[in-house]
């Protein structure tokens, strides 16, 4: 039985199977490529990997933030009299050191981006109308950019002798 008889018998061509010569009595079930397998012919995705990188960022920044934020809480709220010792002089003392400036700067950026991405997910989940999502996310991004820039400016331009 020749392979051309397969089509003539009324069964019709098998989609995606391509080479029908692979069928034979000895090989009745040849390998067929998975229907959604990505090949050279698959068009390139136009969406990019933004959500995957966002997912990864939440986990990586999360690990760093555990250290930065819990350290921050320990210093500000637990050690050396807790919240009672905090004041302008205390802030000036800490920001005299580049180490704590860098600590606070990293904490500011990572926490704001981590929180902003989290709230973006929350908005996407609960705001059902496209217009509502647009406005809420516009507000969120504006507030995020403003807060990050303000905080960065304060850390870099802090002046202990302001008085």
């Amino acid at each position: 039985m020749s392979t051309t008889d397969t089509a003539a018998s009324g069964i019709g061509p098998v989609e995606g199977a391509g080479d029908f010569s692979a069928y034979s009595v000895d090989n009745p079930a040849p390998f067929i490529e998975a229907p959604r397998k990505r090949t050279k012919k698959t068009p390139k995705s136009t969406r990019g990997n933004f959500e995957m990188y966002g997912w990864l960022f939440m986990r990586l920044s999360g690990i760093v933030l555990v250290v930065l934020v819990l350290g921050h809480l320990l210093i500000q709220l637990v050690l050396d009299g807790g919240v009672s010792k905090i004041g302008f002089a205390f802030v000036a003392g800490r920001w005299a050191s580049p180490w704590w400036q860098a600590w606070d700067l990293a904490m500011l950026w990572l926490a704001m981006l981590h929180g902003s991405n989290g709230l973006r997910t929350v908005i996407n989940d609960y705001a059902e109308r496209a217009g509502t999502r647009l406005w809420l996310k516009g507000l969120l991004y504006t507030a995020t950019v403003f807060t990050i820039l303000l905080g960065t400016l304060v850390i870099f331009t802090f002046d202990p002798n302001i008085r």
């Binding site: 302008f88 802030v91 704001m112 989290g118 929350v122 303000l150 905080g151 304060v154 802090f158 302001i162």
Partner: peptide, 30 residues
């Protein structure tokens, strides 16, 4: 996780704003 995350994020805004007062004057900050 979601509820605590949103609460922490809102506090973070307030916290950056209150800390920014060190750039205004020591008295305002204190």
């Amino acid at each position: 996780h979601r509820v605590t995350g949103v609460l922490i994020f809102f506090f973070l805004f307030v916290h950056v704003l209150d800390t920014a007062l060190v750039r205004v004057s020591p008295e305002q900050y204190d």
